[in-house]
């Protein structure tokens, strides 16, 4: 991953890039090699198909997903990019895939979760921080921010460093939050046992009142 004396431009591309171009033609928009790392820009619609092929093809064997993330540039005209870092452990190759999400289009891209289970939390984080929806993800919820977080997506460039709300408002919301609601009556099967709970507790859960803890 850190070859010595690699020029900024003109280093040889990962052979996978040529194989992708031969197989997927127009779906491969562009291939860049910067500092010896190959970046392949692919069409948004065919992402999952391409990733699946990279994973399954015996000549490629990209069996390891290092990272899923996104980049928003300071230029407000420039498209957001979703970035996948893939590795082929048997072949010791490294490949960066990118999908451009132009401004004005829906921030949506296919999830690679069906191919790599490791994409689960990485995609959730990307959704949490950038608001990019990964279609086909089984459980796309916020992960680092709390589920009631209303201020938006923190890593977007239009999100101020200190957050949108004042400190006082942030504190007020934190104090007003209902911790009982986060015991996920919906998400866990204890919901089945709701009828068996003590009367007083049921009332409290229903009303969403705070418990005073």
């Amino acid at each position: 991953m850190t070859p010595h004396n690699v020029p900024r431009e003109g280093a040889p591309a990962n052979p996978t890039a040529a194989a992708l171009q031969a197989r997927f033609g127009d779906a491969i928009r562009r291939v860049d090699v910067v500092w010896g790392e190959t970046t392949v820009y692919v069409a948004r619609e065919r992402l999952l198909e391409i990733v699946r092929w990279l994973h399954d093809d015996p000549e490629q064997q990209y069996d390891y997903l290092s990272d899923v993330t996104a980049v928003e540039y300071r230029d407000p005209e420039r498209a957001l990019e979703v970035v996948w870092h893939l590795r082929s452990l048997p072949r010791r190759r490294f490949l960066r895939l990118k999908v451009e999400l132009p401004r004005g289009t829906a921030l949506e891209v296919e999830s690679v979760w069906p191919v790599y289970r490791g994409a689960d939390w990485l995609e959730r984080e990307c959704y949490d921080m950038f608001g990019i929806r990964f279609t086909g993800h089984p459980d796309l919820r916020r992960i680092l921010m709390w589920e009631q977080y209303r201020e938006g997506y923190p890593l977007r460039k239009d999100f101020p460093l200190r957050g949108r709300f004042s400190r006082a408002e942030q504190l007020r919301q934190a104090l007003a939050a209902n911790p009982e609601a986060r015991y996920s009556m919906e998400e866990l099967s204890i919901a089945d046992a709701f009828a068996d709970l003590p009367d007083e507790m049921r009332q409290r859960l229903k009303s969403g009142a705070r418990t005073g803890e």
Binding site: M1, T2, R8, W35, E37, S66, D67, H85, F94, R96
Partner: peptide
Amino acid sequence: PPVGETYVA
């Protein structure tokens, strides 16, 4: 730095 990107692991 010049324009560019890198992933160093």
